[in-house]
């Protein structure tokens, strides 16, 4: 952690709230991106980044410099996003039981605009559970080291490394099967046209 950030954290902990502006400006973009990748929704990520930074402020007196501050903020973001995803799943189950069609679903254009990854990866990521998706996002897209991910997830770097290797194999298989499926569909389409 750089000296400036360390200094600002100490100031905020001492009650100098205005110094928190520095923290917000330093972390908002990366946390926004991270939340967007986990939540797959730009709008939800915009709300989430605010909630995460407010939570970080509320907890800042609990922060101890032995831990990397960036990892500490990511940890808050991760648990915040997990809660949102769980709530969404429960909400979807409830809606599914009442409605045959989701009226609030985004239009195809909106979905396309909000898409973060190209199609094979998007489809494969949808099949991963949240923990696997998070691991992939942190390692591949956020370029975190295994030690940093370990800090975020409260796991050893070795355990993270093993889990990541398994997740990567899983996603590669999923992407391959997605490609095969697409080829088959394309063949059926061609045959129909003929």
């Amino acid at each position: 952690m750089d000296e400036e950030t360390e200094y600002r954290i100490r100031r905020v902990q001492a009650g100098e709230i205005q110094d928190y502006v520095y923290i917000v400006q330093k972390y908002q973009k990366q946390i926004f991106m991270y939340c967007w990748r986990l939540l797959s929704s730009k709008q939800e990520a915009e709300d989430a980044v605010q909630d995460v930074l407010v939570k970080a402020y509320e907890k800042i007196n609990l922060y101890k410099p032995e831990v990397n501050f960036t990892s500490w903020v990511y940890k808050i973001a991760y648990y915040h996003c997990i809660n949102i995803i769980r709530r969404k799943k429960m909400h979807q189950k409830w809606k599914f039981s009442l409605l045959s069609q989701d009226q609030s679903m985004n239009s195809p254009a909106e979905m396309l605009e909000q898409r973060l990854f190209n199609e094979p990866l998007s489809r494969a990521l949808e099949k991963l559970n949240v923990a696997e998706r998070n691991l992939l996002v942190l390692r591949v897209f956020e370029e975190k080291s295994f030690a940093e991910i370990g800090e975020i997830l409260n796991k050893s770097p070795e355990a993270v490394k093993k889990k990541f290797a398994r997740t990567k194999i899983k996603i590669q298989k999923m992407m391959n099967s997605t490609e095969e499926e697409r080829c088959q569909n394309y063949n059926i389409l061609l045959k129909t046209k003929i």
């Binding site: 917000v24 908002q28 973009k29 926004f32 930074l53 973060l116 990854f117 990866l121 897209f141």
Partner: peptide
Amino acid sequence: LKQMDLMHGEAFQDIDVTDKVMARV
């Protein structure tokens, strides 16, 4: 895998929640 990421820098350049966060803080 990373090359499949469609999120480019421009997509989030305009994100600035400083005022909203600081108001809540």
